[in-house]
Each structure stands twice: as structure tokens, then as C-alpha cells.
Simulated assay, not measured.
Amino acid sequence: MTTGTPPPTAPRRSRTRTLVPLGIAVWLVVEIWLLILVAEVAGGLTVLVLLVGGAVLGGAVIKRAGRRAFRNLTATLQQQPGAESDTEQPAGDRESSGNGFLMLGGLLIMLPGLLSDVVGLLCLVPPVRSLLSRYTERSLERRMNRAAPGSLGDAFQQARMRRPDGKVVQGEVIKDDRTEPRDSHGDEGPRPPLTP
């Protein structure tokens, strides 16, 4: 017994899922080829010194970026809750712009290979880092604005609560901080949470 419907076909693979593994494979081949060229010209000891030096330098860059991020987090947490946010941007925030790209640069320097070292060193240059930060921020904003309702982008723009029957209820929670005794039913302890 056959029906007139064709068999289901597998979804078509996206271009990104095809090109990214190919790009990584090409990157690895070029890295190995460059290391072999340097070893032929300068010797194996030079390649070893380059790889160890890259690991040490990359570790130092990541450590410095981590300390700056922790210092900025501490400063943010120690700010007074009622302080005005309209004031000029603190020096710590100007210093931390592109901190993620600083860490990425350190990680690329730590990876064995000369091409990744060059890209990592480019990420350490402040104008390049700020340019990458602005480009990434604009790109994310465009994607968030294009996001369809119900997608991850929409989740950042509105909070939703779901009732047990599946209906979506939009609203806000208002906390009642009365210190007077509870109602006349004798409930004095906290009530258990509602479960669906």
C-alpha cells in the first residue's frame, strides 16, 4: 500500500555549516605548512622557542584582561544603588572596551601556529580592538532588531509568564513589603510556591 505522498527529505544543510569546517581545515593546513617552512629556514629550536613564547605571552595577556574584567566588575558592584548613571564614563569602562577581544587575542597567541599569532597580535592593537567591538555591537543590534517574535531576540525584549494551561500572560510582579501581621486565618510563615 503506497500513498501519494513523497518520502520526507532531510533538511538542507546551511552554507555556514558547510563552510566553517572547511575553513578550519584550511587554517590548520596553512598553520602546519608555515611551521614547517620556519623549521626548514631557522631550525626546529626556533620553532619551539616561538611556540613556547607565544604560549607565555598569550597567558600573560589573558591574565591581564581577566584582572581588568574583575576590577571592572568589582567597581560596578561597589557603586551606590542611587548613583546617577548619566555621569561621564569612568576610566575603568573606557579601559575595558574591547576586553573580550583582548582575551581572544591572548587565546589566539597561545594557540600553536604563526597565523593565529598574527591575528592575535592584531587583536591587541587598541584601534583594531575598538573597531572590532563597534562592528560586533552593530551586528548584534541588527540581528536583535530583525529577530522574529518568539525568538531569542524577542526574549530579551519582553518577559513572559506561562500559566499551567499554556496561555501567555504579560505583566509585572509587585512585591508587597507590609510588616503588619498576616490575615485572620493564622498564616504567619511563608507560603509554599505555586506549582503547575
Rank of each mutant, 00 (worst) to 15 (best):
V52N: 13
L108M: 10
I24R: 03
F156G: 14
S14M: 01
V173N: 06
N99T: 02
G105F: 03
R142N: 14
P6F: 04
R178H: 11
D93W: 15
E188W: 00
P192R: 09
L124F: 10
R67P: 01
T18G: 06
T179R: 06
D117M: 05
L132G: 01
S139Y: 09
D117F: 02
L77G: 02
T136I: 07
R143T: 09
A83I: 10
D183G: 10
I62W: 02
E31I: 13
V56Y: 05
P112F: 03
P112I: 04
S85I: 05
F101N: 00
P90N: 03
R12I: 08
A91K: 04
G58A: 06
R13A: 03
G106L: 00
T87S: 06
G150D: 14
M103P: 01
G54P: 04
T74D: 04
C123M: 05
V47E: 04
I62E: 00
P192F: 02
A155V: 11
A65D: 00
D177G: 02
V49S: 14
W33S: 15
Q170S: 05
R178N: 11
M144S: 13
E172Y: 11
T18L: 13
R67F: 08
G189C: 00
L28I: 15
G166D: 03
R178I: 00
W27N: 09
E84T: 13
V49A: 15
V118Q: 02
R146F: 05
I32V: 15
P193F: 06
E88G: 08
R191M: 07
T46D: 04
T2A: 14
P126A: 07
R68Q: 08
C123A: 09
L34D: 02
P21V: 04
I109M: 12
R68S: 01
R160V: 15
V41G: 05
W27R: 04
M144H: 11
M110S: 06
P164N: 13
M103Y: 00
P11Q: 13
R138I: 10
L132N: 02
L28G: 10
L131D: 07
R64N: 01
T2M: 09
L48E: 11
V169G: 07
L51T: 12
P164T: 13
A65F: 01
L45S: 14
W27M: 10
S116P: 12
D165M: 09
E188G: 00
R71H: 09
V41R: 15
L121A: 12
Y135W: 09
Q170T: 15
R67E: 09
T76F: 07
G189H: 09
L34H: 09
L194G: 07
L22E: 12
V168I: 15
G120L: 01
V125M: 04
Q170E: 12
I62A: 07
V118C: 07
S96Q: 00
P193D: 08
R178E: 07
P190C: 06
R17A: 03
T5S: 15
S14L: 04
E172N: 11
Q80S: 13
R68V: 04
L37D: 10
Y135F: 03
S184W: 04
P112Q: 02
Q158I: 11
D117N: 08
S133R: 04
V26A: 14
M161C: 10
M110T: 05
A159I: 15
P190F: 02
T179N: 03
A91G: 05
N145M: 14
S97L: 06
G23T: 13
K175W: 10
